[in-house]
Design a protein around this nucleic acid. Sequence first.
DNA 1: GTCATGCTTCGATGCTAGCCGAAGCATGAC
DNA 2: GTCATGCTTCGGCTAGCATCGAAGCATGAC
Lengths: 226, 226
Amino acid sequence: MTEGPDIARIAALVADPARSAMLLALMDGRALTATELALAAGITRQTASSHLAKLADGGALAVEAQGRHRYFRLAGPHVAALLEALMVFSGDAAPAPPRTGPGQPALRKARICYDHLAGEMGVTLHERMQARGLLMGDLAGDLAVTAPGWAHLAEIGLTPVALPRSNRPLCRTCLDWSMRRHHLAGLLGKAILDRLLALAWARRLPGSRVIRFTPEGERRFHAWLG
Amino acid sequence: MTEGPDIARIAALVADPARSAMLLALMDGRALTATELALAAGITRQTASSHLAKLADGGALAVEAQGRHRYFRLAGPHVAALLEALMVFSGDAAPAPPRTGPGQPALRKARICYDHLAGEMGVTLHERMQARGLLMGDLAGDLAVTAPGWAHLAEIGLTPVALPRSNRPLCRTCLDWSMRRHHLAGLLGKAILDRLLALAWARRLPGSRVIRFTPEGERRFHAWLG
DNA sequence: GTCATGCTTCGATGCTAGCCGAAGCATGAC
DNA sequence: GTCATGCTTCGGCTAGCATCGAAGCATGAC
C-alpha cells in the first residue's frame, strides 16, 4: 500500500453536503458570515460552526474576524479550481448567489465607510490598484504603495508629503459590507476619497452615507484606474 | 438552502482513503484489475469490490471485462483533472506506480497476442494511429480506418482488397496485459503483424510469444508511424 | 452596569459507511 | 466432469461523524 498525497482528506472536506453548499456560496470570491453560511447550507449555527472550523483547519477557507462577525472566504484560487473540477464532473451550473448587503442600489454602488470609499467603487479602486501593481500587499492586510503607485497617485494630486503624519496605518484593507470584498482603507483610503471630492468627481449626499459620482467623475475615475 | 450541483456526491467518491489510493494508482492511464487495486489500497478483495462498484456507478471509473478479469481505468480526463486539483491542494507528488505485467523485458516490448501485436510496440502502433487520425474510434472499442489511414497502410503493402472477407471485426482494441493500455486487434491487427513479419521488420522467437524486432525493422516501424 | 447578538463548545443521539469472513457465481485450465 | 482463480454478494460488527439542544464566551449597543 503506497502512501500517496492525502487526497482523501481534502476530498472529505467537500464531501459533506452542508460544507459543499457553503463552499459553493463562496465561489464568487465574497466573504460571508458564519450565520449566512449556515442559512445557505440549511443547517443550524452550531453545526455550521463545526463545519467551518473543519474547512478552515483543512486550509479551504480563510477567516477574518471583524467586530463580532467572522467572515469566511475561499482560501485561494486553488480551492475555486478544485470546486470547478468537481462541477465539471457533475455537469451542473452554480447556484444563484444569496442576496446580501444594503438594498438601496446607491449604497451598494458607493458610500462612505468611516472616512474612505466603500461599495462597488471602493472595491474597484482597491482591486484595480492591486492588479496594476500600485500596491504591494501581504496576507495580513497590510499594504504599501509602490513607486509606480506614487506616480499614479500624483495624477490626481496626491503626493507623499501631502499626507499627514500619524500613527494610523497608511494603507489598510477593509472588508466591504455589500460587496464582501476588500476595499481600500487607512490614511490613503481617506486621502483618495478627499481628492475625489475635491476634484468634484463625486459628492456626499447630505444626511446619508451615499456618495454620488457625477457621470464625468465616474468616467475619469475608471480612466484613471485604467 | 439553494440546491447546487451535487459536488458532495462526487467528492465523497474520492473522500475514502481506499478509493483515493485506487484512483491514484490509475492516474497513469493504465487499466488495473480489481485484485491489483485491492492490493494498492491495502484492503481485502471484497472491500475493494464494493469500492470499485461505487466508483464505477459514480462515473469515475470505466470497467472492461476480459475473461475472468475486470479491468478498471479512469473514466476520462475530467477524472484525472479532478485528482490533479486535489493534488495541487495537498501539494504532494504522485506515488510510484505498482509493478505489473510480464517480468521478461522482451515480452513487455513485443509479443503476439492471439494473432496480433501486443506489448509496447502494439500499444504504440494503436496510439500513434489514433493520434494521427488514421483510425476513427467510438467509445465501445469499435474502430474504422479513415481514408488517410488506408493511404498510410498502403505504404507497408496493405490494401482493403488484401484483407480476407470475414465476420470478424476488422478493427478492434484489446487491453494489453503488460502495458494496461489498448493495442490494435481484429483483422487489421492480424494483417499488420503479418506484414511486419513478411517485411522482416520482426520475427517470432520459436517456442515463445516474444516477437523480436530487428534494429532496422524497429527504426522503420517508428518512421512509418511518424 | 444590563441586554442583545454572533459565534463556539459540550454532550448525547442516531445514521451511515467501511470493513472483513464466509459463501456464491462466474470463467478458464485440465 | 474437477479444480483453481477472479470477483461479487451477504451478514454483522464497529467506528466515525453529522446533527441539534443547551450552555458558555465574546463583542457591541445602551
